[in-house]
Design a protein around this nucleic acid. Structure first.
Lengths: 326, 326
DNA sequence: CCATCAGGGTAATACGTATGACTAGACTGG
DNA sequence: CCAGTCTAGTCATACGTATTACCCTGATGG
């Protein structure tokens, strides 16, 4: 198909396109950027575009970035991709970013940081950050930033979940089933979103007992086992996370407790796990969180003032909750 | 702490460092690159380094990329991050890449492509690719590439799992438990890794019945339900994936079949799902796959000939397999 | 005493793009 | 007929880095 000319040693540049089209390099740039309406005649523009197509020209990103002083790259700061929740956040954010011609790179950052945060200012245009102390961003040149469900004060642009509403629905569901004494298997992580869940539960439930566990099946198992072994064990167990809920489920089995006959269990997130185990849980629209945060960041980058949305978190009732038996 | 000098409008460049140190920009570059031993006196080098530290200088990546014609960026081509398997691959690859000063960006590419693959040659130094037809890479300037468990012929560098060994262990386990008639819930995806699983099973099992399903709990449920409703249903069901195995598990419950009493079920991958449901499965070291593939790619980029490792896949026996009842 | 050389540094340049400054020619109006 | 405007371009330059070619000074050697 393509004529077998001498194979180009290096990718074609705008200068090559200019030579092919018989115009100057600046003209090529003007045509292809599309930012100079009426600056170039329609026929010349057409010639240029055809030449570019013929040579398979693609602008060199490094040169463009250098010239424009921007990178069209956004940093997503999250603890790990292994957690499906964050994978979903990434997916949503990446979709919006790609549609806008941005690329999204992941910057791994532990929930418990082990040093000051160093933003690679020169390499990025903006950041999406979860679980990071906002003030660790202080620096000579602050980077446009949108926080992910973790903005304590409301100073920075942020996207949050309606945790309060979710906890209201969740407790109402449990109360309606007759539960009064409720356990809280809380994530042992000092993050705002978990603090909110705890305080919302404190406000809603009179007879609450709380234990903490790092997020994992095994740790959830241990903490739940201990709690459920107590003589005054709760009849329902609210877990901060589906993974913890799975651990609790296993602990209940190990103790010979029937779910939901003897014990109701709920989670947060609505991961595949929850579907697999028929777990009643609070669905957190993680992908939507990522998408809206990226939208807000793009607004910010274009000088528009971003929305500060609060996303609804819906209770999904499955088979791990039931009426308390007398 | 820091003296409140006039805030710099833009990040410091090597020229600023040169001025601060009282030398030329070229000297700064020579010192900081470290590639010119003996070219600059020790005392001058020290002065330069101190100046750079004082100003908080970080080389501009765009300028460096432009000058050097490389980007220190690797593309990871995978269908989705939502699948925990690929998230693990990413994690392993990213770790190795970061240690070597490379950054890893994800390029979403469906298993069933909807168009020819366009490599952004100018933006990357190399690629890690899974589930992609190798010849869709054909182009004027091929990009260094390592394939992930999907290399049909062995022409390109690749890292693979020892699927044959895993299937051997798996079938031996089932045979030892007395199973003879075995079902195969196969992934309805035209990917090499699944073809290998199928042919390895064909070779090992005399009495095999196979059904196909897209990878999801619901589709696994449906396909398994149909298979298990047959009068001559198998006593063991080998699933290509843990997710399918979960669907099969649910189908068994719905049909009143006890696992593992009436039916043994196995999966592949060893995701959290498998742990949550006590599923016997083949552990595929996904993170290791990513790490070794990245190592091979870095070898390739440095002109070394990369290893072509085959990673062992270990059978993890849990409680979803048991002795067949007479 | 001059040629050579090593040491230690500087000046100049190229990478590829986007854009502000400039200009040759065509057209307009008074 | 000429000053002014508009059209459709070109020229030159800057972004920040890495590297090549050059330069100056002093030491060495024959």
């Amino acid at each position: 198909m393509t004529p077998a000319g001498p194979a180009p040693a290096s990718p074609p540049t705008s200068k090559d396109v200019a030579a092919e089209a018989g115009v100057s390099q600046s003209t090529v740039s003007m045509v292809l950027s599309g930012k100079w309406p009426g600056r170039v005649s329609a026929s010349t523009a057409q010639t240029v575009r055809e030449a570019a197509e013929r040579l398979g020209y693609r602008p060199n990103p490094a040169a463009r970035n250098l010239r424009l002083g921007r990178t069209r790259t956004i940093l997503l700061v999250i603890p790990t991709l292994t957690a499906p929740f964050f994978a979903a956040v990434y997916t949503g954010a990446a979709r919006v970013a790609n549609e806008a011609g941005f690329s999204l790179v992941i910057f791994p950052w532990p929930i418990i940081p082990d040093g000051p945060f160093r933003v690679p200012h020169e390499a990025i245009d903006g950041m999406l950050a979860s679980s990071m102390a906002e003030d660790s961003l202080a620096g000579p040149r602050p980077v446009p930033l949108v926080m992910l469900d973790s903005d304590p004060e409301g100073t920075a642009p942020a996207v949050n979940f309606d945790i309060e509403g979710a906890v209201r629905d969740l407790t109402a569901h449990l109360f309606a089933l007759g539960h009064r004494r409720i356990g809280h298997l809380a994530a042992a992580i000092d993050a705002w979103t978990f603090q909110r869940r705890a305080s919302a539960l404190d406000a809603a439930v009179e007879d609450l007992v709380r234990v903490f566990a790092p997020i994992a099946i095994s740790t959830g198992y241990e903490a739940a086992y201990e709690l459920l072994s107590r003589p005054d064990r709760p009849t329902a167990l609210v877990c901060d996370d589906d993974t913890l809920a799975v651990g609790a489920h296993k602990a209940a089995s190990a103790l010979g407790l029937n779910v939901p006959g003897d014990l109701s269990i709920t989670g947060f997130d609505d991961l595949v796990l929850a579907e697999a185990l028929d777990l009643t849980t609070v669905h957190l629209p993680a992908e939507e969180l990522g998408a809206q945060a990226m939208t807000a960041l793009l607004d910010l980058l274009q000088g528009r003032s971003p929305a500060r949305p609060v996303l609804p978190a819906e209770l999904v009732v499955r088979r791990s909750t039931g009426r308390v038996e007398l």
